[in-house]
Design a protein around this nucleic acid. Structure first.
Length: 450
RNA sequence: GUGGCUGUAGCUCAGUUGGUUAGAGCAUCAGAUUGUGGUUCUGAGGGUCGGGGGUUCGAGACCCCUCAGUCACCCCA
């Protein structure tokens, strides 16, 4: 016999966990809906050509490829000249790596029918062949909201408000909405004359929190930057103060770059729009870079409250030419993503799940024999018609056992229809929380709330 | 892909310098209780000690290999 198991980095979700997860999903979904976003779902797998090259070298490595194991392909693969050729013969599909690229693909495929701007949300699992660790899974859910076909910075403002709304509704406090603009980072590379090293620079400075100023300096040197370059970057990283002070320092330091000035302007608008109040105001973090290199404007990352050591629970940004890679030029997109699995871990750690998420069956009818079950069934159907979750114990087991079942399931009410009740034409309703029991008529029962 | 730590009952873990038949708590099931749950008491089931090899008179323990889990790095939600 094989010991049953599941692949590492994947999880089963039991009833209690699913209920809690649904609470998060519902909070996010309803917020997306009230902001005017429409639902979209795409297949778990995409053609490999849709996905490869979109997430950088690392992304290609972490992609779960689907093996096409029919005999013809296997034979052809054996004759392949290189590993690369062999793998492209063996696999032409992969599980989706995120929701943004499939969305871009969908937009391009349906561009004739779509009314722009198109605002969609999508909540589905994605897969990454990563080594699992705390807060990192190989199958996890993302909840994305994106807008394509609108250049207005009001989108950015609204998306930040969505973060603020959802996290507040989930009862989270102490989270940080960190905002930056890719044009500023791009301008920094421009100022030191190393635009080709933009990605290296951003990856390094993004680690400032983790490895410190000295670590960043070492890494930048290793990536081919001169001492003079590094000095400029360190001045950049030293930027601090209030948002206004940071913006002013950026303006001075990056005065030579028009791109940077544009980015500073955008950042200033997003931070200071004043269209609506935030519960937790977004903050400027010039070291925020984010990995995906298709971002071109605002970038945002949500940090979990510092006490839980979880890091990022969401992120997003603007990409001016997302659909360009599929041949549809000049359409801008901006979007955000919630990492549900990490939010779950954070809420769990901070004990922020409301009790009410666990309520399921409200009333259990005890089964005390054929006549009892028959009478109970019709009362049960009345409750169900009223929208009250109810069940009947299907076996005519000992009362003790049935009561224990109700207790363990957390069912708050038990209805007893034994011989005496049937004779009197009454129902005994017991509240398991208080221990109180009362006999009521059928008419009174039809009015009871649970 | 790289490194550290951990694998004993369904779960959490004991198990002495290597020594007889591997234990506890929780959980499960049954009974005390033939119309009343939570608390209590009694009893039962449940293990090729992750797998394979080695050292030894003797291995859950020591050595090697392997698999799995976990944490960290890379990268990322």
């Amino acid at each position: 016999m094989i010991k049953p198991s599941i692949p590492s980095g994947t999880r089963d979700f039991g009833p209690v966990v699913v209920r809690k997860r649904n609470y998060i999903f519902q909070t996010i979904r309803s917020t997306f809906e009230v902001y005017g976003f429409q639902p979209l779902e795409t297949p778990a797998m995409e053609n490999l050509s849709t996905l490869t090259g979109k997430y950088g070298e690392e992304g290609d490595k972490l992609m779960f490829r689907i093996l096409s194991n029919n005999d013809d392909k296997l034979a052809a693969a054996k004759a392949a000249a290189s590993n690369k050729e062999m793998s492209s013969i063996l696999s032409d599909k992969a599980l989706r790596y995120d929701l943004t690229i499939p969305f871009a693909r969908y937009v391009v495929m349906n561009q004739q029918e779509l009314t722009l701007p198109f605002k969609r949300y999508q909540m589905q699992p994605v897969w990454r062949g990563d080594r699992p660790q705390k807060g990192r899974y190989r199958e996890f859910y993302q909840c994305d909201a994106d807008v394509v076909g609108s250049n207005s910075l009001l989108n950015e403002v609204e998306l930040l408000l969505i973060y603020d709304t959802v996290l507040t509704r989930l009862g989270l406090q102490g989270y940080e909405l960190r905002v930056n603009n890719r044009k500023i980072l791009s301008g920094l590379a421009e100022v030191i004359g190393k635009q080709d090293l933009l990605t290296d620079i951003t990856i390094s400075i993004d680690k400032l929190d983790k490895i410190g100023a000295e670590g960043v300096r070492k890494e930048l040197a290793a990536r081919g930057l001169t001492d003079a370059d590094i000095t400029t970057i360190e001045q950049f990283l030293a930027i601090s103060g209030t948002s206004e002070e940071k913006l002013a320092q950026l303006k001075t330091l990056l005065a030579a770059s028009e791109t940077a000035q544009k980015g500073i302007e955008e950042l200033s608008f997003v931070i200071n729009s004043g269209y609506a109040p935030f519960n937790t105001a977004p903050i400027i973090d010039v070291t925020l870079a984010r990995g995906l290199n298709y971002y071109t404007g605002m970038i945002v990352e949500v940090k979990a409250p510092a006490t839980v050591k979880m890091g990022s629970i969401g992120g997003g940004g603007r990409y001016d030419d997302l659909t360009g890679m599929f041949g549809m030029k000049g359409t801008s997109g901006v979007g955000i993503s919630f990492g549900v699995d990490r939010i779950y871990d954070v809420l769990e750690e901070l004990k922020l799940f409301p009790e009410a998420t666990q309520q399921s069956t409200k009333v259990l009818f005890l089964n005390l024999g054929e006549a009892s079950a028959r009478a109970a069934f019709s009362y049960m159907m009345q409750l169900r018609a009223r929208g009250i979750a109810a069940e009947l114990f299907h076996e005519s087991a000992k009362m003790d056992k049935q009561m224990k079942y109700a207790d363990k399931r957390g069912i708050p009410y038990v209805v007893i229809l034994g011989e005496s009740e049937l004779q009197e034409n009454l129902l005994s309703v017991k509240n398991l929380v208080s221990g109180q029991q009362e006999k009521v008529s059928a008419a009174a029962f039809a009015e009871m709330t649970f």
